[in-house]
């Protein structure tokens, strides 16, 4: 995988033609997204450029501590972002932070320990970013669902508590459904991968001139790593967050 390609600035600039096309469609059909498209384009240029320099710096310094710091920052901002999707869950930040940290640490730790990837910035930074990003989406979806389900199932949960069930027993069906919804998107996209869409890593590698065999193999490793991280984060987030709906005396809080 030592292949590399060089992308000229003029190529990037020319691709903005397609942004203009998107803006034109929005204007023509009054979708009222021109402003958002402009903001999104500007942000993508600034954010990716900054990240590019940050990654270049991390690669140059080649320190594992700097990589861990970057991953920790990703976990922190991932938890903050996911919290907005989990507004109906009281105290969701703590569970999300722990879920993302555990998902990132355990999956990255495992792929390194099993010898799949070397513990170098070149692997840990991009793979860590994907792992934490997917874990964030999965735990946000799971907690979003948990908040809705707890509200919908309030009567059933209280009726179950009234029988002397523990909070865990009363919330079990709700927790199960929330976990499922956090995991299902990636499971489904793993099923259709290659048929309906080409995943990003594979596309990137093919463009960069890697052999299709290598591209497929790396993509498979990443998909399986993501499945692991998504399951861990959705599980940890729901199992920690559902408790916040209950008092220590197994009463359903007002929320």
């Amino acid at each position: 995988m030592s292949t590399s390609i060089h992308v000229e600035l003029w190529q990037v600039a020319t691709s903005l033609v397609l942004v203009a096309l998107a803006a034109a469609i929005s204007y023509w059909q009054r979708a009222d997204l021109e402003r958002d498209i402009a903001v999104a384009t500007a942000r993508s240029i600034v954010q990716l450029t900054l990240v590019g320099y940050a990654i270049k710096l991390i690669f140059d310094v080649d320190s594992i501590w700097l990589v861990l710091l970057l991953l920790a920052v990703m976990v922190f901002f991932g938890a903050i972002t996911a919290r907005h999707r989990a507004e109906k869950v009281p105290g969701s930040f703590g569970p999300l932070l722990i879920a993302l940290a555990l998902a990132g640490a355990s999956t990255l730790g495992l792929v390194v320990a099993l010898g799949i990837f070397d513990p170098t910035p070149r692997y840990l930074v991009p793979v860590g970013g994907m792992v934490i990003g997917n874990a964030m989406t999965a735990s946000a979806v799971a907690l979003n669902r948990l908040g809705d389900e707890m509200a919908d199932a309030r009567a059933r949960i209280e009726a179950t508590l009234a029988l002397g069930a523990t909070a865990r027993e009363a919330a079990a069906p709700t927790v199960r459904r929330s976990l499922r919804s956090g995991m299902i998107t990636l499971v489904d996209s793993t099923k259709t991968t290659g048929l309906i869409f080409f995943p990003g890593t594979m596309v990137g590698m093919l463009l960069a001139g890697a052999s299709p065999t290598d591209a497929v193999r790396l993509q498979l490793i990443l998909l399986y790593t993501l499945l692991g991280s998504v399951s861990i984060s959705a599980l940890v987030a729901t199992l920690l967050a559902y408790r916040n709906f209950f008092t220590p005396a197994a009463q359903l809080r007002e929320f």
């Binding site: 209280e158 009726a159 009234a162 029988l163 002397g164 069930a165 523990t166």
Partner: peptide
């Protein structure tokens, strides 16, 4: 929990 099994509520 023990109390709720002894004093049962039907909502």
């Amino acid at each position: 929990l023990a109390l709720r099994r002894e004093v049962s509520l039907v909502p």
